[in-house]
Design a protein around this nucleic acid. Sequence first.
DNA 1: ACCATGTAGTCATGCGCATAACCAGAATGT
DNA 2: ACATTCTGGTTATGCGCATGACTACATGGT
Lengths: 360, 360
Amino acid sequence: MPGANGRATQADVARLAGVSQATVSLILNGGDTGRRRVGEQTRQRVLDAIRMTGYVANPAAQRLAGGRARIIGVFTYEPVFPRDSRDFYHPFLIGVEAQAEQLGCDLLFFTGTPSPQGRRLLGDGSRRLGIADGCVLLGRHDDKRDLADLLSRDFPFAFIGRRESDAGTVPYVGADYVTATREVVERLFALGHERVGFLGDLRHDEPSVDRASGYHQAVRAARRRPVVLDGTGLTGGEALDLLGDNGLTAAVVWPSGLAPQIRSAALARGMSVPGDLSLAQLGDVEDGSPGDIDWTGFRIPREQMGAAAVQLLFDQLVSPTTLGATALQRTLACTVVPGTTAGPPAPGRVPAGRRSAQPG
Amino acid sequence: MPGANGRATQADVARLAGVSQATVSLILNGGDTGRRRVGEQTRQRVLDAIRMTGYVANPAAQRLAGGRARIIGVFTYEPVFPRDSRDFYHPFLIGVEAQAEQLGCDLLFFTGTPSPQGRRLLGDGSRRLGIADGCVLLGRHDDKRDLADLLSRDFPFAFIGRRESDAGTVPYVGADYVTATREVVERLFALGHERVGFLGDLRHDEPSVDRASGYHQAVRAARRRPVVLDGTGLTGGEALDLLGDNGLTAAVVWPSGLAPQIRSAALARGMSVPGDLSLAQLGDVEDGSPGDIDWTGFRIPREQMGAAAVQLLFDQLVSPTTLGATALQRTLACTVVPGTTAGPPAPGRVPAGRRSAQPG
DNA sequence: ACCATGTAGTCATGCGCATAACCAGAATGT
DNA sequence: ACATTCTGGTTATGCGCATGACTACATGGT
């Protein structure tokens, strides 16, 4: 005898099975407790009744009563379905969706007006994560206030991408940019380059710091001198000049989007890549650029990161307090790809850049 | 004094403002009733208290109490974030997200195991739409049982794409394929073609029926004979042969994905498009194929359809019973695009197909 | 003086579920 | 024979909110 809205409730099931509503709940959520507490024949009667009535739990009621609704919130700092940029989030979300499905969870996407600083999760009283069991967060902007807010309440969450905060242990699934960068740089040294430059945005966010760190590890291991160049805001040509001025025959580029521009500038000046200049990207380009070039560098396991973040969140839901700090911070390996934009240095050739742009 | 979970409740607000919880609720949801029922200074005190406490409504409680949670469910019959096919859903979802944001609603995506027949919304007791205020549905498969189920309960929903059912008025936002197809065919006649063929999957789903209908309208208006060819499962070459065997110099192709294959086959045989054969697509290709060709045909307003569907759902939520059958079924116009794959027939030239593949 | 009408709220209840607290009867220990 | 433990449940309660029913007081009409 379903209610007015056409859905059966636990009470309906209970009535049909001749037990109390609490018994139905026990059987459904009791776990060990339930199994020990309810007799087998009663159990079967109730399960039959559930089948007959087509009962499905009302997630709102489950949440309100302090249970889990099998709903995972997803918070992005930008629209999930962007119109232009061919989709920074997409690969992550493939993994998120797949894993959520695996775990039988639905996904709740929080919309919100993107503000210039990105949108905040908890501030301004507009957000209502209350309905979700927990929340997966991803995006390039990270708001330290959001981090602190999240840590201060007991709302489970997981970041995609490494995040650190003074306020506590931030649960995240990151990629090991340090190792990946180190390996790429080592590879360039192994090819015979005397010096390998790091050309990038010298910011202090986690992704940048990690790459710089991996670079320095490789340079130190090879007993060479680091050449760190600030490429912020540079055009391809300017960046190429900068590399040439520093006499470099090889460089890793961060963020990766700059690399194709440098390559284009080089080709335009009659140089060859990797003949005259070896280039490597530190991670796949975000906007799926005209990609017939097989770049040397590494690939970020975005899909797996999304899936792992959902799993991390789920693990927290299942055992609210058990997880230690190490279990809360998970790191996945990147795949180094050989590619075709790096090779041995041309012997006796003038290093890249301005000078070779005006051949005599 | 927020609760244990760190969030303020209406009771907290009420205590701070010196009123009862019911008054807070009244002010927040009363609409006209509330404004008449509560004095202005009390109102202000409560609003201040809300600001001070940072109160945000708990959607679970709102739903449970029969109210609206500002959550819109989205049901697709396939994964929302597909790995391969460059994204049939994406354009719709851009509109859905934008409109949901506009209306201040969050989006709940139902995951579920895609089965060969697509997944069912309500069957099998696994789905829980209960948390959402209503649901937007989209996908190529439509399950007549789902339609009947949905109509039988009072759960608001809206389809993206026309759907019909014997069980009642199905709320949907469709595109006017009939008019668009008619206009495209008229255009081909206007270019001077004696006969214009319809080559397509002759199915009975709404999108196919609409296109066939528009084709026949145009043919009738031009007082010509219809040439309807079944293109199901044909390769480009086979389809080209079929057109040639029927002596056609122009054809509209459905689904649109077949058109590029026909064109390629034609070019491979030394024919020219539109010189020897005019082709038009009935709608944009779904998988964003290598698109440097400017196809004659029409464009489906996917983004607007997504937005309109959300709006349609929202309208139902606001006035549960007011909407008549006409207001529940909305149709958007497609944009006819001239393109470059249709032109006047070559005078005195042999029609397309096999024969011109063996020039003497 | 009395009822009708309006104003500004409060009270009580229930949505569907999870869960702590309780309880009856049977089995077991001593 | 009586206390203890186990088995198999039931009762009671509250989560946070919306909403119908009710109340207390003021104002106005007759």
